[in-house]
């Protein structure tokens, strides 16, 4: 069984985000890392291929400046190879363009039995790319998967809902998006890290994949204003001296909640 995983490489979420003053888009020119949201997909793919007893996990990613650090992390976890789409023309791409690019990159790898993505990226969180990719590829899809099982040609997914989950079945090939925490992503071993250095990463441009127009030109949107939201004022902060719960009681009484 061959599985392709979409992995986004993003600025370290621990660092404060910044907008590029000239374009008002999120800055992504520093060092990028593997989006944690996608580490679950990589782990799930590795487990599925392992269970199937054969096949491999491939990666697709679109990122600026030929960035590969996040891909290397996923390769070190055990993925076999990757296609990276990196092209200055792609700056400012919307989620639809991203989906077209990733779909073309996935096709370059050959038909996979399953394509896995995260439900939403940590920095963009549009949450639309996986379903758009499925539509571009003409594949069925199941979003918000909290568990995934493959039984012959059938995919069995527990899909998160507002108040529980649905059991969903789907034919393969298909696209699934997985929620955070579905599996425990493995830490790359030293051996894995060393091996990842020589695994193939095929770097291509949007034009190589035949996707146009891309970037701002294809985004059909322009950022027209950036403003500060009215800040919420901090109130009273008190140290617990053993009686602080009475403060809460008084606060609730005052609001007539109790």
């Amino acid at each position: 069984m061959n599985v392709t995983v979409c992995v986004k490489q993003i600025p370290d979420p621990a660092l404060p985000g910044e907008l590029d003053p000239s374009t008002n888009a999120l800055k992504r020119d520093g060092k990028l890392i593997l989006d944690e949201s996608d580490s679950y997909g990589v782990e799930m793919a590795l487990q599925l291929v392992d269970k199937a007893g054969g096949g491999e996990v491939s990666l697709v990613s679109m990122a600026p400046n030929g960035e590969v650090s996040g891909l290397r992390t996923a390769l070190a976890m055990g993925a076999a190879k990757a296609v990276l789409v990196s092209d200055p023309e792609l700056a400012g791409s919307d989620s639809l363009t991203t989906a077209k690019v990733l779909a073309a990159a996935a096709q370059k790898l050959g038909q996979a039995d399953l394509i896995i993505a995260g439900t939403e990226s940590s920095d963009g969180y549009t949450g639309t790319v996986p379903e758009q990719m499925a539509a571009v590829l003409g594949l069925p899809s199941v979003t918000f998967a909290k568990s995934v099982e493959v039984d012959g040609d059938t995919l069995k997914v527990n899909r998160q809902t507002e108040d529980g989950y649905d059991e969903v079945t789907c034919s393969l090939p298909a696209v699934v998006s997985v929620t955070a925490g579905v599996v425990e992503p493995r830490y790359p071993s030293f051996k894995g890290i060393m091996a990842a250095k020589s695994k193939p990463v095929d770097t291509v441009t949007a034009a190589d994949l035949g996707v146009t127009p891309v970037g701002w030109a294809g985004a059909n949107q322009s950022i027209t204003q950036v403003a500060q939201a009215p800040a919420r004022q901090a109130g009273e902060v008190v140290e617990d001296d053993g009686e602080a719960h009475l403060k809460i009681v008084a606060f609730l009484e005052n609001l007539k909640v109790i």
């Binding site: 969180y125 639309t128 996986p130 379903e131 539509a135």
Partner: peptide
């Protein structure tokens, strides 16, 4: 911006080749 809204919008965006603005 919920499960169903997001999925339908994504599919429609590809069918119509129009962008989506979320959140």
């Amino acid at each position: 911006q919920n499960y169903e809204g997001r999925d339908v919008m994504s599919r429609l965006s590809v069918a119509l080749d129009r962008t989506v603005l979320t959140n």
